[in-house]
């Protein structure tokens, strides 16, 4: 009975985090982007500086008609948003935010493996949406998504593998337990590769060629309206949270910090995740979209060699230490 209660409580908390934190990131994006462009951003919804803008957006999306195109593959079309969103919920379960047993939804022994595999499934949602919409723009977007997934999954995995080698474990809490501060300079290249590849996998600007709204009308999401479209958007922001959380855990030492080692580790995790989320927004505001061939070139000629070099470095240092 107690176990059931424990599991239920953990699931509720994970679900609450999953629903709230992406909205915080979304609101931060509204405001940060606006101020970076000399604007104010939303100011009305909720009264104080438009804090409830995304709630209002959600209400609006919920009121819209849910249209499925006549020629669409109905079941697949309707299923796609869930496929895009749910993997991130599963990933959040496995991300530890503090050193104690209670600070992680569920300890998964093969943590990195689980997390990266499930995140790959998320991209499948876009593929399904692109194919099932029976729309040429959606199809273009879907194919671009597929190409991007192929190109960027590899450097991401290689960079993560480097950390796993360094720690000697694939468990996320295990990696954090083995973390030393000098891992930061040691793994910095891997961290950059991981973060950039993750951005590309989320199709965030400047890697948003698959959803380029000014040329292929939001790609795979062209035909989506209402709540299903909102779910895709939520998936994007949940993706930001997951990517920032994972980068924090794998490369930035998670709950380790200069002070507050006992009990306050989760503050460090959240702080680092928040800063990374800010960087994600910052990059989006600053850089223009990469062309499709530039995207591929960046992945295959820059990120993968860098990731391989990082693995080599990790291996050499590891052997030298032992």
């Amino acid at each position: 009975m107690n176990d059931v209660l424990d599991v239920a409580l953990r699931l509720v908390i994970v679900f609450a985090v999953f629903m709230v934190v992406p909205l915080l990131v979304g609101q931060a994006e509204h405001k940060v982007m606006a101020h970076m462009q000399g604007r104010l951003g939303p100011m009305y919804a909720g009264g104080f500086h438009g804090w409830a803008q995304l709630v209002a957006d959600g209400v609006k999306f919920a009121q819209k008609e849910d249209v499925v195109p006549a020629d669409a593959d109905r079941r697949i079309f309707q299923l796609a948003p869930a496929v895009a969103l749910l993997p991130y919920l599963l990933v959040i379960v496995a991300i530890p935010i503090g050193p104690s047993e209670g600070a992680v939804g569920q300890v998964v022994d093969a943590g990195i493996f689980f997390v990266l595999a499930v995140m790959g499934v998320g991209v499948l949602g876009s593929l399904m949406a692109g194919w099932a919409s029976a729309n040429k723009f959606s199809l273009l977007g879907g194919l671009r998504t597929a190409a991007q997934l192929l190109a960027y999954e590899l450097p991401m995995l290689l960079a993560a593998a480097s950390v796993a080698m360094a720690a000697g474990t694939v468990s996320l809490p295990g990696i954090l337990n083995a973390f030393e501060w000098w891992w930061l300079p040691w793994q910095i290249v891997g961290a950059l590769v991981f973060f950039v590849a993750g951005l590309a996998e989320l199709q965030r600007p400047p890697f948003d060629m698959p959803v380029a709204d000014s040329e292929i009308i939001f790609g795979a999401y062209t035909e989506y309206t209402g709540l299903r479209f909102a779910l895709f958007l939520l998936a994007e922001y949940a993706g930001i949270v997951v990517l920032c959380g994972l980068t924090t855990v794998l490369f930035l030492g998670g709950w380790h910090g200069p002070l507050g080692a006992d009990g306050l580790g989760w503050v460090w995790t959240l702080l680092k995740t928040g800063i990374l989320a800010f960087v994600v927004i910052w990059l989006r505001v600053t850089y223009p979209r990469l062309r499709e061939d530039q995207l591929q070139k960046l992945a295959w000629t820059t990120l993968i060699p860098l990731a391989l070099a990082q693995i080599a470095l990790t291996g050499i240092v590891k052997v030298a230490i032992n």
Binding site: H35, M36, Q37, G38, L40, W282, V285, T286
Partner: peptide, 21 residues
């Protein structure tokens, strides 16, 4: 150039906005 771009957006964020309410 990439760093310069980041600096521009960060500097703009710290300045007063031009929006007339």
């Amino acid at each position: 150039g990439l760093a310069k771009g980041l600096a521009v957006t960060l500097r703009t964020m710290t300045k007063r906005t031009v929006t007339a309410q």
